[in-house]
Design a protein around this nucleic acid. Structure first.
Length: 549
RNA sequence: GGCCCCUUGGUCAAGCGGUUAAGACAUCGCCCUUUCACGGCGGAGACAUGGGUUCGAUUCCCGUAGGGGUCACCA
């Protein structure tokens, strides 16, 4: 009886690995081309970290004329969520992260190195597991989960390093004959890797981001095929990234400590290991402590959060890129209008330590991103958002011509307004410009310096009768307000007012404020000249009338 | 607890043996201005700590403290 007999008994139908090695030949890519990927699990809300990883991987592939693919790691069926795959695809799409290969929907895919869903690759893993068993590098383990747990408890109470290794690996030295007999008797088993490692030896690893890291060798006989017949992450990672030709594995640094295991797996399988780039995790301040952004506790951990809030994907990408390469913001300042794919991303310049997620900064970036958009673009994007999340805003925007004018106020010039950080800000920003919203609602008018009824009435009436002409240019328009102020005994110039304390009760600015408040019921607004232009004379008159009621 | 990683202002961070220790966000003040936003100018604010090495350490080494990660038939 040989290892081969055992392997044949366990995986009677598995193909020889040469079949797969030939089926998935080396990629024909230019020198230096990076094959990168993102490999999420369909376990629910897509994590912002997945977007982060995807962004980085996509960028590297683009910059080197390489390949970026998406692989679905669905080997944990217990945690899998219905719709999980489409959520992932959709989320990546929301951020314009489009894969060259991989899943394109829950059940379709493109590319020659598939299947790109691990549960569809079962046969492939079996072939390689069989290969390992034939070599005596893997073995069936008959320990039940309870037994393994017991071993762990013993180790803990004896203060010994826990795990399935060395003398604790009970099934490691079972003879082929015994194993075959147990299997024939119907005993349940899983497949474990027979680690050749020794804990007292060190390995050196050079990580693209973390630099040189030394670890003890792995000596754990980890599970490679679970009771459900599917592989564990470690095994699938080695097989898949080998067969799919991944050159750089980017993943969160929670994987860093598995590197010794993974390197060993590649070694024993006879594969060339990829390079690794372990990115720092996005952290969050929690009562003074830093911790990983968590799907469960933090809404901002979900990629969908940004969509719901209406933060443009472009802004999120800029923020993420800024965390990834902090020189991004310098580049952005020097190149305010270039698309971000022209930014030269350097993975080895990524920070070694984790960054606290800064929502304030994100929103600041978002303000700038939105300020550069045309009225048309703002219109389209906020409408798309409103259709899903805000019926009232959608209704307001249904008058497209008018909305375009409203959104065009102080936009498109050298110093565009920066008061919208997210689409959910839009409504509050423009609602007073819509007559049906403004006129039909009770408004509170908080007059400032000039606040007695008669004066206000005089200002509004006189302004409409005598000083407002729809076709005035801005200078004429404002001169008229000065004239109005003068006629009513207020200072025509603010300077004059300040130079002659006591002479005037108010100045032209105060008169403007009355107009502004009567018009909008707000103390602060964008440029009033433009507002009046958009409202038009009829609306202005109605608003004054309402203010005087 | 073992192993691994990290530590520059409130936050993100330049720096890589000699710098007045950049910059961005936030914050404060001033200016611009009919309000706000923008913009401009300026202020306050940092090398966790103790030892080395060195003519000289934020930078190199060791310890301490603090933080993070990981130790599954989860990824």
């Amino acid at each position: 009886m040989t290892y081969k007999d055992l392997a044949d008994l366990i995986f009677p139908n598995a193909k020889n690995i040469s079949y797969y090695e030939e089926k998935y030949p080396k990629r024909n890519l230019p020198e230096g081309a990076v094959v990168a990927r993102v490999a999420p699990s369909p376990t629910g809300n897509v994590h912002i970290g997945t977007i982060y990883q995807g962004l980085i991987a996509r960028k590297m592939a683009d910059q080197t004329k390489g390949v970026f693919f998406v692989r679905i790691e669905d080997t944990d069926q217990k945690r899998e969520v219905e719709d999980g795959i489409s959520q992932i695809i959709q989320s990546l799409k929301n951020f314009d992260i489009i894969p060259d290969e991989g899943m394109t929907s829950a059940d379709t895919e493109i590319g020659n190195y598939g299947p790109y869903k691990q549960s569809d690759r079962k046969k492939i893993y079996e072939a390689y597991a069989k290969y390992l068993i034939e070599q005596g590098k893997a073995y069936p383990c008959f320990c039940t989960p309870e037994e393994v747990e017991e071993i762990r408890k013993k180790q803990e109470s004896a203060k010994i390093r826990p795990g399935y290794y060395g003398i604790w690996a009970k099934c490691r030295n079972i003879t082929v004959e015994e194993a075959i007999e147990k299997i024939k008797n119907g005993e349940k088993y899983i497949i474990r890797f027979k680690s050749p490692g020794r804990e007292d030896r060190k390995i050196k690893h050079h990580d693209i981001i973390k630099g040189n890291v030394d670890f003890p060798e792995n000596d754990q006989d980890i599970v490679i095929i679970k009771a459900d017949g599917l592989p564990t992450y470690h095994f699938a990672h080695a097989i898949d990234d080998h067969l799919m030709g991944t050159t750089i594995v980017t993943r969160g640094d929670e994987w860093l400590s598995s590197v010794p295991l993974h390197l060993q797996l590649f070694q024993e399988l006879g594969f060339k290991a990829p390079k690794y780039a372990h990115t720092s995790t996005l952290l969050k301040n929690d009562d003074g402590n830093k911790r990983k952004i968590s799907k469960r506790k933090d809404p901002e951990a979900a990629a969908s959060y940004y969509v719901e809030e209406g933060i443009p994907s472009g802004a999120v990408k800029e923020y993420l890129l800024n965390i990834a390469n902090s020189n991004f913001e310098n580049w952005r300042r020097a190149n305010p209008d270039k698309p971000i794919n022209e930014f030269d991303f350097q993975i080895n310049k990524m920070s070694v330590s984790g960054a606290l997620f800064d929502m304030v900064k994100l929103l600041d970036i978002s303000k700038i991103v939105i300020s550069k958009m045309s009225a048309e673009e703002v219109y389209e994007k906020s409408l798309t958002w409103a259709k899903k999340y805000d019926k009232e805003l959608e209704e307001m925007l249904s008058d497209k011509d008018y909305s375009l004018k409203v959104l065009g106020i102080e936009r498109g010039n050298k110093k565009p307004r920066k008061d919208i950080a997210k689409w959910s800000d839009v409504k509050e920003n423009i609602i007073y410009m819509y007559d049906d919203k403004f006129l039909n609602k009770d408004q509170e008018y908080q007059y400032q310096v000039i606040n007695n009824k008669e004066e206000i009435e005089k200002i509004l009436k006189l302004y409409l009768e005598k000083y407002y002409n729809e076709n005035d240019d801005k200078d004429t328009w404002f001169n008229n307000i000065k004239e109005l102020a003068g006629e009513l005994g207020f200072a025509k110039e603010v300077k004059e007012f300040k130079q002659n304390p006591g002479k005037y009760s108010a100045h032209v600015g105060d008169v403007s404020t009355v107009l502004r408040i009567a018009l909008t019921a707000r103390i602060n607004t964008p440029d009033m000249y433009e507002i009046m232009k958009v409202l038009g004379k009829e609306s202005i008159a109605k608003r004054f009338e309402k203010a005087l009621k």
